[in-house]
């Protein structure tokens, strides 16, 4: 990970993140239902992208099957919420995430020891195809038709109960929880553990030589990323109120990769910016049949060829140029 040239100061970045959050919270007041729905989906995708980059940008792990955890989390929540409606929804959400983290830990225990780089990527791709096939042919999960009628739960908070099915309540819930999840990823990245991740990403051999248990930390990165991704999937189910096997498809796993590279691998908020950019692109071209893919593809190509640092990389370079000029008398 190259030191990013002209990052904004920490205070400014925190301010920008808060501004972004405020914009999300203010959105239902000014935009129509369609946009609000899109914004809720984007908020989840932003966190989903952040978790992928926790593995890639921080720890150097490339996963081609990240969507399988989104899907497992989503289906696990939907199934559990129907089977055990008396359990507190927050517990069910957390349980879906923990399940994903546990599965990732088990899979990673074998997969990470045996394979690295592109092999690990293809192995995760194979496993995600298995998840996809199992979901699409499981009667209990609704097969190809999808798991329908996922309800937005009532949220008992001790002193009061919030009905998330009412109005925009579930939207606000998504935005707040997404912010919390992003906070968790941020905290992991900037903690001591995050620094160990980066040491492994830069040079696993040297990290091992310095006494870092490389495999254990890789496993930790994979499990945390998968667990948080599972929670975003769990939140997505009630938002859409239906889950189809498409959420586990490999093209869904390509999403966080695109977000990350579009936004900027070397920046913590890169995947979030990329997810936002991608959504704007898709929304802007949604009515053009076929043209929308062409435009999206062409812009991605342009970013790769002209601005390999992603959107934030380009912004940083621009900042550097401006501030550099300003410093001269």
């Amino acid at each position: 990970m190259e030191p990013s040239p002209a990052q904004a100061s920490p205070l400014m970045r925190f301010g920008l993140a808060m501004l972004c959050m405020a914009a999300f919270l203010a959105l239902p007041g000014i935009a129509d239902k369609g946009i609000v729905f899109l914004a809720g989906t984007v908020a989840l995708q932003m966190v989903f992208g952040l978790t992928w980059n926790l593995m890639f940008g921080q720890t150097g792990l490339v996963s081609f099957g990240h969507a399988s955890f989104f899907a497992v989390g989503g289906y696990a929540y939907a199934y559990a919420a129907r089977a055990l409606p008396q359990v507190h929804p927050l517990l069910t959400f957390a349980g879906a995430g923990l399940l994903c983290a546990a599965i990732a830990a088990l899979v990673g225990l074998i997969a990470l020891r045996r394979s690295q780089g592109v092999y690990f990527a293809i192995l995760t791709l194979a496993l995600s195809q298995i998840v996809y096939l199992v979901i699409s042919s499981s009667a209990a999960l609704g097969r190809e038709d999808g798991f329908t009628g996922i309800r937005r739960p009532k949220l008992p908070l001790g002193w009061t109960t919030i009905d998330l099915a009412a109005g925009n309540a579930y939207y606000y819930f998504i935005v707040v929880v997404s912010a919390l999840l992003a906070g968790i990823v941020w905290w992991v990245t900037h903690s001591r553990v995050g620094r160990v991740f980066r040491a492994i990403q830069q040079d696993p051999e040297r990290a091992a030589f310095l006494g870092i248990p490389v495999q254990r930390y890789r496993l930790m990165s994979y499990a945390i990323a998968s667990g948080v991704a599972g929670v975003t999937g769990a939140l997505f189910g009630p938002w859409l109120q239906i889950l189809t096997p498409e959420v586990a498809h490999w093209t869904a796993s390509a999403r966080p990769i695109l977000y990350t590279l579009l936004g900027g691998v070397h920046f913590f908020w890169g995947p979030a910016v990329g997810a936002l950019g991608f959504a704007v692109l898709e929304y802007g071209t949604r009515t053009l049949h076929g043209i929308s893919e062409i435009v999206t593809g062409a812009i991605l190509l342009a970013v790769v060829l002209a601005a390999p640092g992603g959107i934030l990389g380009a912004v940083a370079r621009l900042r550097q140029r401006i501030t550099g000029k300003e410093r001269r008398p």
């Binding site: 990769i257 076929g290 062409i294 593809g297 991605l300 190509l301 790769v304 390999p308």
Partner: peptide
């Protein structure tokens, strides 16, 4: 980045076929 570029190309192929 070459990976994302080929994915972009895939999107363009899909779009071209639809169009």
């Amino acid at each position: 980045y070459s990976l994302i570029a080929t994915y972009a190309l895939l999107l363009i192929c899909e779009g071209a076929v639809k169009a």
